[in-house]
Design a protein around this nucleic acid. Structure first.
Lengths: 166, 166
DNA sequence: CAGGGGTTGGTGACATGTCAACAACGAGGT
DNA sequence: ACCTCGTTGTTGACATGTCACCAACCCCTG
């Protein structure tokens, strides 16, 4: 509350550590995933999100919202995944504009084969290195920050943690 | 120790929270930074790393190592920053292959003007939302994970937490 | 039902990152 | 001096993400 302008020793350590962890963890998980399954992290996120819905399908906008991606980014990425046969675009029954992204057979098989190895990697490189208290702290702190940030509302198309509707 | 294959409730919460926080925090900080200073996060990292060295310069490889970037990525990015006048390339005295990346006047001014606002943003969106215990936990946990990951060594050119020299 | 205003998803241009290959050099042994 | 091997930084081709814009569409009101 006293020095709003700078970070003290521990705060700086936490911030630097977070950034380094973030960079290295991403890299390592992406490597493991790609090597063992041929999927990118982006592919994995799309597939796993779809596989958790019933019907294994979602409107593009909803899928983008779940993943915190822009619609543009998702549209591009779906086009590429579609060409690889992992997902398909279908027309939306009630809305002629919409497309529904559907998990294909191959996509389902891909995510089911990839999931165990990825969970193991997440454990090995992160979860199993933490104490129960640290996991609880990370859980609490991350959700608090997420809540704070979604309260700010994202602009235009780019990204969108749902605009405020007060 | 009992279920290596899946994550329990709290672990899954921590993992999901971490990923969401990561995505939103990046986005928000990048937005604030770009809006207020015209710099990207990548620009900021390069400039602040250089400004913390004495002589305000580093060999490309060393700079890349500090930032956990690939040499290729850094080379490309330095080319762009060079065109904007934020940094310069100079020849390396002892090694005819090397280039030394030097902070320019404009680059120094840019980082000095950008730093306070960026620190404030980091506080507002993250640090000030955490308790002291959480900051300590994040500090400890992130460094532990970083140590674990750097012990694995990065391949080829791509990225490189310094290969093992046991 | 006509029209305004917001929504949906797609597109092209461009910014950025990755990967593999390369030329130029340094360092050590012979 | 020569050869071999590793290092350094750059480059081009390509993969991916961002941004601004657009056409088609939905919904609401007069």
């Amino acid at each position: 509350m006293d020095e709003p302008r700078w970070l003290n020793q521990r705060e700086a350590g936490a911030w630097r550590g977070y950034r380094r962890m973030r960079a290295l963890l991403d890299l390592q998980l992406a490597r493991d995933l790609t090597r063992e399954t041929g999927l990118s992290e982006a592919d994995y996120d799309v597939l796993s999100t779809l596989s958790e819905t019933d019907g294994h399908q979602l409107r593009l906008t909803e899928l983008a919202a779940h993943m915190l991606w822009s619609k543009s980014r998702l549209s591009h990425h779906i086009t590429r995944m579609q060409q690889r046969g992992l997902v398909a675009r279908e027309e939306c029954p009630g809305d002629a504009r919409g497309s529904v992204i559907v998990l294909t057979e191959d996509g389902l098989k891909a995510i089911e084969e990839a999931a165990p190895a990825h969970v193991t990697a997440v454990r090995r490189h992160m979860i199993d290195l933490l104490t129960d208290d640290e996991i609880a702290a990370l859980d609490a702190l991350s959700h608090r920050i997420v809540d704070h940030l979604t309260g700010l509302g994202g602009r235009q198309d780019t990204n969108e943690p749902a605009p405020r509707t007060p």
